[in-house]
Design a protein around this nucleic acid. Structure first.
Lengths: 225, 225
DNA sequence: ACAAAAGTGTTTTCATTACACCCATGG
DNA sequence: CCATGGGTGTAATGAAAACACTTTTGT
C-alpha cells in the first residue's frame, strides 16, 4: 500500500458473528466446529479474517453468507474484543457482529475451515473456543435491549406470521410470559403490521389471522414493551 | 510473537477517543491539532496506535491520560470504524471510545504528535481529519441515549453540585428546557443523590443546596427521563 | 366432546405532564 | 429594591397492567 508503517506490530483483525434464530421454541445460535488448532474440535462462532481492502461490515456480510448461506437479514456491529491474550497464536482483535435470521432463511453448511456446523440453544451451549462465550453473552444482552425499542426482531420471523407467533418470540427472548390482550393491543397500536387477509388453517385449533410487516427496514421506537 | 501469521495483510489498529465535557454552558469535546501529514494542522480526535501487548481498553485509558491528563472518568467503547479508505496512508481500523469528564478534571496538554489541543463546542466544530466527524456524530447519538437510562452523566459534574447544575447539563445535551418541578421530583425519586447539608453561597441569588452522588459506579435504570 | 390456541374490553394503577407563585441573596 | 435562580404541590392525562370468558378448529 503505502510506506508509513512504522514500528508498531500490527495485530490481525477478524470478524465473528453471533447469528440468532428461533427453532423449536428456543433461541438458538449458529456454531461451527473448528477443524484446526487452536481449539480443534471445539465449537466457535462463525468468523474469519478481514481482507486487506475489505470494509469490516462487508467482511461480516461475507462470513454470514459463507457460513450460513443467508443474506438480507439484520446485521449490526456488536462490540470489539481486543484482549492481548484472547488468541493463543498471537494478537488478534475481533469485531463481533450480531445477526438475526428466521429459521427458514438459514441454510447451514460447513465452510472450508469447519468440521461441522449446528444450531445450539443459548440455554444449553457447549464449551466455546477463545472468548466466544463472552461475545455471546454480550450479544444476548444486546438482543434483550434491542427488541425493546426497535422493530428488529421482525428478522426472526417468516414473511407471514400470526400474533401468537410473534408473542412467542418475545416470550422466548425475555424468558417470561406476556398477557395476550395487552400484547396485541400494544403491538397493533404501533402500526407496523398489516393483516394479509388470510388465515392459517390446518392446525387443530381455531385458525389465526396472518400478518406481515408494512416495512422491513429498521425502525427505532420511543419504547416498545 | 508466534509464527501463525499467514498471508493476510494485517491492518493497523488505533483507538480514538471522544471526550465530552461541559464548559460555558456548552457541550464540548477535546480535539488535537495534527502535527504531521496526513491532515497536518487539521483538528482530530485524540488517539493513537494500540500497542502490541496492550488491551484495547487499556490503550484508550492511556491515550485519555496522555492527551487530557485525566483518569477516573467514565470511558466506554463506542464503535469500530473500518472502512478501507478511512486513512490515506493505508489500512487503519480504529476502535472509538467515548469518555465523559467534568471540566475540572480535564487538564488539556499537548501530546508529542499534536501541535495544539482545545475544547470545541459540538455545535461549532472545525473541519475534522479522517472520518472523525462521523465518529463524533455516533458519540453524540450515544450520549443522548445513554443519559436516558443510566447515571453516567454524573461524570460530567463536579463532586458537589446543585439540582440546577444537573438540570442544566441535561438541557444542554438534549437541547431543550425541562420543567423544574418535574425534573427535581423525578431525579430525587431515583434515590441516586444525597444532600451534603451545605449551601452554595456567594452568588447573587438565593443559595442552593449541594448534592453528591451516593455512588459513582455505573448504574442502568429502567428508564430515566 | 375435547384440547388448544384465537380473539376480545374494561378497570385500576402508575408515571408523566402541565402549570404559578414566593424566597433568599448580592449588588 | 431588583435581578436571578432556588424552592415547592396539585390536577389532568395517558400508558401499562391486571383480569376471564367465548370462539373455532381438528381429531
Amino acid at each position: 500500500m503505502k510506506p508509513a508503517h512504522r514500528k508498531i506490530e500490527a495485530p490481525r483483525v477478524t470478524v465473528d458473528i453471533v447469528i440468532f434464530t428461533i427453532e423449536e421454541a428456543k433461541l438458538k445460535t449458529l456454531l461451527i466446529k473448528r477443524k484446526f488448532d487452536p481449539f480443534k474440535n471445539i465449537w466457535a462462532l462463525p468468523g474469519g479474517f478481514v481482507r486487506s481492502k475489505e470494509d469490516i461490515y462487508a467482511a461480516a456480510l461475507r462470513e454470514l453468507s459463507e457460513e450460513s448461506g443467508i443474506s438480507g437479514v439484520y446485521l449490526e456491529q456488536l462490540y470489539t474484543f481486543g484482549s492481548p491474550k484472547r488468541d493463543p497464536r498471537g494478537r488478534v482483535i475481533t469485531i463481533a457482529y450480531f445477526a438475526l435470521a428466521s429459521r427458514q432463511k438459514l441454510r447451514i453448511r460447513s465452510a472450508s475451515d469447519a468440521k461441522d456446523a449446528g444450531l445450539f440453544s443459548v440455554d444449553d451451549l457447549p464449551r466455546l473456543a477463545f472468548d466466544h462465550k463472552e461475545i455471546l453473552e454480550k450479544a444476548l444482552e444486546r438482543l434483550g435491549n434491542k427488541i425493546q425499542y426497535t422493530n428488529v426482531l421482525w428478522s426472526l420471523l417468516p414473511e407471514y406470521f400470526t400474533l401468537g407467533d410473534i408473542q412467542r418470540v418475545y416470550e422466548i427472548i425475555w424468558g417470561k410470559k406476556a398477557d395476550k390482550r395487552n400484547f396485541r393491543k400494544k403491538l397493533l397500536s404501533l402500526g407496523l403490521l398489516k393483516p394479509i387477509g388470510k388465515l392459517r388453517k390446518g392446525l387443530r385449533r381455531r385458525p389465526a389471522r396472518l400478518y406481515q410487516f408494512k416495512t422491513k427496514k429498521y425502525v427505532e421506537l420511543k419504547r416498545f414493551f
